[in-house]
Simulated assay, not measured.
Amino acid sequence: MSILSYSTIGSGPEYVVVLHEWLGDHSNYEPVITYLDTQKFTWIFVDLRGYGDSKELSGEYTCEEASEDVQRLIDKLGIHSVNLVGHSMSALVAQKILVDNPLLLKKLILVTPVPASGIQISETDADELRTSVFEHSKIRHLINLRTGKRYNSSWLDAKLMLATKASTPKARAGYLEMFLNTDFSSQLLGCSSPVRVIVGKHDIPAFQRETIKKLFSQWYKDLVIVECKESGHYPMLECPVFFASMLEKFVTES
């Protein structure tokens, strides 16, 4: 069985497993690392199949496979209770892990999340996204939209480089189909597990606070949503101090 690659920072007793987004890998979190408490927490940054240090691992790129992969890694590490962070695409995976193994999770922290019902868009828009997997100009355009068209060319170029180096086109295409065609939201109705969400004020409407609140409040009884007023879809890159502080707050609150 293949085991996902990961990197660990810190040696604290509280474990936090961190997953990445569609257009990035574990290196998305590099701006945050300086601000993380490494005495109270052990931070485990994971790369999914086809991404980062797991780039050589191919697969089906389904939500079920990703859920099993992450659980297998946690089991290998000998950890019996974790706080799980999912960003955008991997928030869908994190919610699947909650369905599959709720006793494993202490807190579920979702960042600009894809909902458990997947991304509901027209087939025309879906086809446009499918072409973006292979075209750098379209990936750059997606990044620009998801940050409110507020950043200069240098930042957009840097994020584009991160996005295209992070994964293989095959993995991006596979996970795109995952979040376009997955819906297990009915299995979360009435869920009492604590779920904490960070959204960005300058994100596209599908990921903004009111949209997320409307969807997620159908499923989760213990739900808190915090809006980062100075970010779009990538608060760990756009507002790293705020992001690190919110992660620690969510993990430690009662």
Rank of each mutant, 00 (worst) to 15 (best):
W219S: 08
K213Q: 15
I212W: 03
W219R: 09
T211V: 12
C191N: 13
S185R: 06
D203V: 11
I204T: 15
K214R: 12
F179W: 15
R209L: 04
S192A: 14
K214F: 12
K213T: 14
V197D: 04
K214Q: 15
A206P: 11
R209T: 00
A206S: 14
T182Q: 08
H202W: 13
Y220E: 05
K201W: 01
D183C: 04
F207M: 10
F216E: 07
P205A: 00
C191D: 11
P205G: 02
G190V: 08
Q208V: 08
F207D: 05
I212G: 07
S185M: 08
K213F: 11
K214T: 15
W219M: 11
D183A: 05
F207A: 12
K221I: 09
Q208L: 10
V199L: 07
L215C: 13
Q208R: 15
T182P: 01
Q208F: 10
K221V: 03
V197M: 04
S193R: 13
F179R: 02
I204D: 01
L189S: 13
R196W: 10
G190N: 08
Q187R: 12
F184S: 05
Q218K: 14
L188S: 04
S192R: 07
G190T: 11
S217P: 09
D203I: 11
H202I: 01
T211C: 12
Q218E: 15
H202A: 08
F184R: 07
K221Q: 14
G200I: 00
L215N: 15
L189F: 14
D183Y: 05
K213E: 15
S193C: 06
D203H: 13
K213S: 14
R196Y: 13
S186A: 10
F216W: 11
F207Q: 09
E210W: 00
G200V: 01
V195I: 14
V197H: 04
R209I: 00
K221T: 09
Q218M: 12
F216G: 04
W219V: 08
F184L: 06
C191L: 03
Y220V: 00
H202K: 06
F207T: 08
H202D: 10
R209H: 09
I198P: 03
F184Q: 04
S217F: 05
A206T: 12
L189P: 03
L180Y: 03
P205D: 02
R209K: 11
V197W: 12
N181D: 12
K201H: 05
Y220P: 02
V199Q: 05
G190Y: 02
V195Q: 09
Y220N: 01
L188C: 04
P194I: 00
S192P: 05
E210S: 04
S186K: 05
I198F: 10
